[in-house]
Design a protein around this nucleic acid. Structure first.
Ligand SMILES: [Mn+2]
Ligand SMILES: [Mn+2]
Ligand SMILES: [Mn+2]
Ligand SMILES: [Mn+2]
Lengths: 220, 220
DNA sequence: CTAATTATTTAGCTTTAGCTAGAATTTAAT
DNA sequence: ATTAAATTCTAGCTAAAGCTAAATAATTAG
């Protein structure tokens, strides 16, 4: 069973929107995630249903099937491995990789994926801190919470970002909030939800609720 | 001006068949090179003509335009750089790279090509000995002749192969005729055109006319 | 110089993946 | 319980890229 590039992109979007296959997703959500019209989505859902990668009931949502899950995770695995390659080997910035990985993830060659994985030394996380599924689709995920959820004086380590848009990532670069940084919450403003944090015991940063919501922390 | 994947493949085939843009090519030749039907080729030629990458006159051949040449060479550059990557970095065998490079060559990202080129240390030739065009499409080609054309006692170095099919390349691996090997023609059989050569001053190989025709030599 | 053969193109059909416009269904609000 | 609003789906169109069958042009042979 092989999927077209469009089908892979839809399935990946569905997987992400359903939060790793848990809840059901809406046609409109898929449309906006994938930058297309709801009518196109309806049509694709029918096709994906026929291919049995999702279970689709008209007007009610859809559920990704175990088969669909496996295929989605394969594509995600490739996407993230390529991102590691681009950053580690070709010295791309972490905000420059997404677009290219979006293309590279569709290259069909199991040998290529295996060799790439080995060449990169079997990385467990991509440049944005997202876990890389193994060849069987198993994801070893760490318990992580949004920086926004942390209380005053709580500390931890930045392990991932929710938003991978260049604008957001470049902002993080600017303020020095990189993956791996150790942080401690110094203060939280009730009024607007903004937070003040100490980074690596030396630098103090103020950030809005919006920003703090997109930074994921492994607490300690 | 950007081309679709299919258009890039056609243009590349046209470029190769025309022997780097010299002679004109036929519809049937393109069809068999690209494994498609002549009717499909006719249709694509019309489109490529409209995009002005070829000059097309119905029923008479076609000429690749300077623009078409530039675009074809860009794709060829990418193809060959990826082949180097696969062999040098991911340890693919030289007969395993073509199919994958055929996909990778269509990835759109000038930054990627630049970085890849630098990462590979600006290689001048691909694993099959074919020259890699620079970013402006300039190809520094070496004067080379088919092993078949050599006379007895003439010597030289294997610098490239004409045929890159796995079957042929694996045969060369088996007999030890690799790129870079120094050879000398010991004997030629008039009857069937087969030749006997000495490889690296130690090993003697017999090969058919067909094989000798697909091995390219830099004479010395 | 015709006539047969070969090469090439055109016409019309298929699939994939989009789109718009409008119909159908579900959900929310009186 | 209706009605209104929002969501989702269907119908019908387009473009790319392929196909087969048939038409047409060019080439070769007698
Ligand atoms: Mn993609
Ligand atoms: Mn990522
Ligand atoms: Mn290709
Ligand atoms: Mn090659």
């Amino acid at each position: 069973m092989e999927l077209t590039t469009a089908e892979e992109n839809y399935l990946k979007a569905i997987y992400h929107l359903s939060e790793e296959g848990q809840k059901s997703v809406s046609t409109n959500d898929i449309a906006s995630a994938i930058q297309t019209k709801p009518a196109s989505v309806s049509d694709m859902l029918r096709k994906l249903g026929e291919k049995e990668v999702i279970q689709y009931r008209k007007y009610y949502g859809l559920q990704i099937t175990p088969l669909g899950m496996r295929l989605a995770l394969q594509t995600i695995r490739k996407h993230r491995l390529w991102e590691v390659f681009l950053v580690d080997k070709l010295h791309f910035a972490w905000d420059e990789v997404h677009e290219v990985a979006e293309q590279l993830e569709h290259i069909q060659s199991t040998l290529l994926v295996e060799r790439l994985d080995a060449y990169l030394n079997y990385p467990k996380f991509d440049p944005h801190g997202d876990p890389i599924p193994d060849e069987f689709g198993d994801v070893r995920s760490r318990p992580r919470i949004a920086l926004q959820e942390m209380g005053i004086d709580q500390s931890g380590q930045i392990v991932a970002v929710k938003d991978s848009s260049p604008a957001f990532l470049r902002y993080l670069d600017k303020v020095g909030a990189y993956i791996g940084a150790r942080i401690k919450v110094l203060d939280k403003v009730e009024f607007d939800g903004s937070v003040e944090i100490l980074v690596d015991q030396k630098k103090t940063i103020f950030m809005s609720k919006d920003v703090a919501n997109n930074i994921l922390i492994l607490t300690s």
